[in-house]
């Protein structure tokens, strides 16, 4: 009996990370990051105490954490969410309650790129680099969501600079890349700083 859907039953409590490729249904309690490639459904009695990332994230229960959908986040009647919500499509139905920053739209593929850059950087043991990059991409998107062309340009260049920084960190030559605080939000400055940093690393 091979199972492709994971069900966390009503009386089950998971304290730990949940990752994988398939779909997931939470009827119980999960306190730990959820990152899956399939759909995540939090049932009416489900409770999740950390961030959730999936292809589609459907919530009817309670979540304290960010929700990121590669395709969509759907909050249905009964949902109670405290956390940020990001997806190309976000729907919040009558009866769903949310406190947090919500952003629809993909910004021309920036989140997908950042996810791929993140998973590329991870094998190089560059988790701080990935976190900095994601924060930088999010910070870049926040002030100018209406100006769609700007964010992807900004997101791609730091991705390249950070990946090189991550590679350098892995080879042990320079720790300046991952440890740097997130670059300022202004796109022009960010580009210059990235290039200056690259020169320093050489």
């Amino acid at each position: 009996m091979a199972a492709n859907v994971t069900v966390i039953g009503r009386t089950t409590r998971v304290h730990g990370r949940l990752t994988g490729a398939s779909d997931l249904e939470v009827q119980g309690f999960v306190e730990g990051e959820i990152v899956v490639g399939g759909d995540v459904t939090v049932d009416a009695q489900g409770i999740v105490g950390a961030s959730v990332r999936g292809r589609r994230v459907i919530v009817r229960g309670a979540v304290k954490g960010d929700l990121v959908g590669e395709e969509a986040v759907l909050l249905q009647d009964g949902a109670r969410v405290v956390g940020d919500v990001r997806a190309p499509r976000v729907a919040i139905a009558q009866g769903a309650l949310v406190r947090g920053y919500v952003q629809t739209g993909e910004g021309d593929g920036a989140p997908a790129r950042s996810a791929r850059a993140q998973s590329a950087a991870r094998p190089a043991a560059a988790r701080p680099a990935a976190a900095v990059h994601e924060r930088a991409a999010v910070a870049a998107r926040a002030p100018a969501p209406a100006a769609s062309p700007a964010p992807p340009k900004v997101a791609v260049k730091p991705a390249a600079a950070q990946e090189r920084g991550a590679a350098h960190a892995a080879s042990g030559t320079n720790n300046a890349g991952p440890r740097r605080p997130p670059p300022p939000v202004v796109p022009a400055l960010k580009k210059t700083k990235g290039q200056i940093a690259k020169k320093k690393e050489r």
């Binding site: 994971t6 998971v14 304290h15 990370r17 990752t19 398939s22």
Partner: peptide, 13 residues
């Protein structure tokens, strides 16, 4: 509770 083939859980259940 079913922990499907494509899922990894690191922690306590």
């Amino acid at each position: 509770t079913v922990i499907g083939a494509g899922i990894t859980i690191e922690g306590e259940i």
